[in-house]
Design a protein around this nucleic acid. Structure first.
Length: 494
RNA sequence: GGCAUCAUGGCCGAGCGGCUAGGCAGAGGUCUGCAAAACCUUCUACAGCGGUUCGAAUCCGCUUGAUGCCUCCA
């Protein structure tokens, strides 16, 4: 029986601002759409946090036995909304700077994005559509919106008529705004625009002569507005109404608000049942951003090549650090926090690996079923990963107590303990064990170290501590730490 | 200016009216030839001021501070 029949999941819905019991439109299947990256530069850690937050959602839904169709787009056409002269399609701009084709830019950073996600052990989405691959669908949606009377065209461009839409709908219901306030607050800024109202947003923009990315349409040679692609692709792959729509907090307004307006304009119903917004990863207390340079790249983190970092951190540690905060909380990136997370991460992994050392008894003195459920309770409460991790450390405590034989466990319960630890650490959190020797796959090295350990033990038996300490300390110097335990000496690479 | 969110112990972070997570650091201990590692135990908090309540970190109001959005942004 699928787990989702016995576990009740609650999701915080941004639009109702409440945790709601999750119930998908189609029994046992979930449709989820997440706004993906704009591929005109390398993704930074802030971008990664959002995608890792939704990777957790994806993984947990799958773990619960749902069939999930996870759609995450690649924005490979620059979106342009305003008509100020400083605005320029970021992809076309980057293409000019690097003197290459726009699609070359797109390709380069798409590859980077995929490689980065793979290093974080994030699962690929079920469908990863591109904006440029769905121009026809976007044009069709514009035609329908015009037909419904919620859009108008001016000089080859088409704009969504927010004022008209707001007469029979509520534009701003997701972000808690209302049109009257927005109008009164922006009146002073309204310059010479071809839009009827500053709040109107572009569905189609006529391309000027220098604009590289352009497509033919009934209105002009141009390109689609930036809110349109998500409506086109989510509708195409998930239907007019689907279960979960996610994205970064910064996309709530105007992007997601506009998606709602576009969908409601043509389908007359709300497109999404559960809106989820992942919060920002900050650096120095400020949001990471590509434009301001206030960001840190995954590659810098993995290599340690950044003045903010005292050392390199593995992708698993970075992920663990992020999951120690709930996805709806702002999280500040710092070396201190990473160092602390790394130690906790190693403790968790070491304990997991030592489960095999536990011996079984006739009776269990600990209630493993209650503990197991508390892990699920954490995730069922709006994917509360920090609570889950706290529960996993309870599991660590159980493991250590059992190893010391201060508690007993049956074979069946031990299997539950191991399966639960494994399921949550590797399947749900998607952590990887980067510290183990397998990644290095270096039998020669471990053979040499084993020899040194043997020599050291001989010296110790002969009370030749000068020799034994030299072996220990010199190995430490090159980053190999010996660990003396009851069962003999082991080692780890740092 | 408008809208929204947040303020928790040395640090990072849960918490959503009573039972006061977890990690890191600190302190004590076990083990050890000495260490390290590992493990066990342990300390401390809810921005300020009012209010509601038998009882508030948790609800309400005000004050202060911070952040996000209102322009591309995960």
């Amino acid at each position: 029986m699928a787990l989702h029949k016995t576990q009740t999941l609650y999701i915080y819905n941004s639009i109702s601002k409440e945790k709601e019991k999750f119930s998908p439109i189609n029994k046992g299947a979930v449709g989820m759409y997440v706004c993906g990256p704009t591929v005109y530069s390398n993704v930074h850690m802030g971008n990664c946090r959002t995608f890792l937050s939704f990777d957790l959602v994806f993984r947990y839904l799958k773990h619960l036995g749902y069939k999930v169709r996870y759609v995450r787009n690649i924005t490979d056409a620059g979106h342009l909304e305003n008509d100020g002269e400083s605005d320029e399609d970021p992809i076309a701009k980057k293409a000019k700077l690097e003197n290459i084709e726009p699609m070359e830019v797109v390709q380069k950073y798409t590859v980077d994005f995929h490689q980065t996600m793979a290093r974080f052990n994030a699962l690929p989405p079920s469908i990863e559509p591109t904006a440029t691959g769905h121009i026809i669908e976007q044009i069709e949606i514009i035609e329908q919106i015009i037909k419904q009377g919620y859009a108008y065209q001016v000089n080859g461009s088409v704009y969504f008529d927010v004022t008209t839409f707001n007469k029979d709908h509520h534009y701003g219901k997701l972000s808690g705004r209302n049109l009257e306030d927005m109008i009164s607050n922006t009146r002073a800024l309204a310059g010479q625009s071809e839009k009827k109202n500053p709040q109107d947003f572009a569905l189609w923009k006529k391309a000027d002569s220098g604009h590289i990315m352009r497509w033919a349409s009934p209105w002009s040679d141009g390109f689609p507005g930036w809110h349109l692609e998500c409506t086109a692709m989510s509708t195409k792959y998930l239907g007019q109404q689907f279960d979960i729509h996610g994205g970064g907090m910064d996309l709530k307004f105007p992007h997601h608000e506009c998606e709602i307006a576009q969908s409601e304009a043509i389908h007359k119903k709300s497109p999404v049942n559960y809106w989820m917004h992942a919060n920002m990863l900050t650096l120095n207390g400020k949001k990471m951003a590509k434009s301001t340079g206030n960001n840190i790249l995954p590659a810098e983190l993995f290599s340690g090549e950044n003045t903010l970092l005292s050392k390199a951190f593995s992708p698993g540690v970075a992920k663990f650090f992020m999951y120690q905060a709930q996805y709806r909380s702002i999280l500040d990136f710092s070396d201190d926090a990473l160092v602390a997370s790394e130690k906790g991460y190693n403790k968790l992994m070491d304990a997991y690996k030592s489960i095999d050392d536990i011996s079984c008894s006739e009776h269990s003195s600990i209630d493993i079923t209650i503990w197991r459920q508390s892990c699920y309770d954490a995730m069922n409460d709006d994917f509360n990963s920090p609570i889950l991790i706290a529960q996993l450390f309870e599991g660590v405590k159980h493991i250590n107590t059992l190893k010391e034989a201060k508690a007993s466990i049956t074979k069946e319960d031990l299997q539950v303990l191991q399966n639960t630890m494994h399921g949550f650490i590797f399947e749900v959190l998607g952590l990887t064990d980067a510290t183990s020797m397998e990644t290095g796959n270096d039998d020669k090295l471990s053979g040499a170290i084993e020899l040194l350990i043997e020599l050291r033990n001989q010296a110790r038996n002969n009370k030749d501590f000068a020799t034994s300490d030299k072996i220990r300390d010199d190995l430490q110097q090159v980053g190999i730490q010996l660990k003396d335990g009851k069962e003999g000496t082991s080692f780890s690479l740092s």
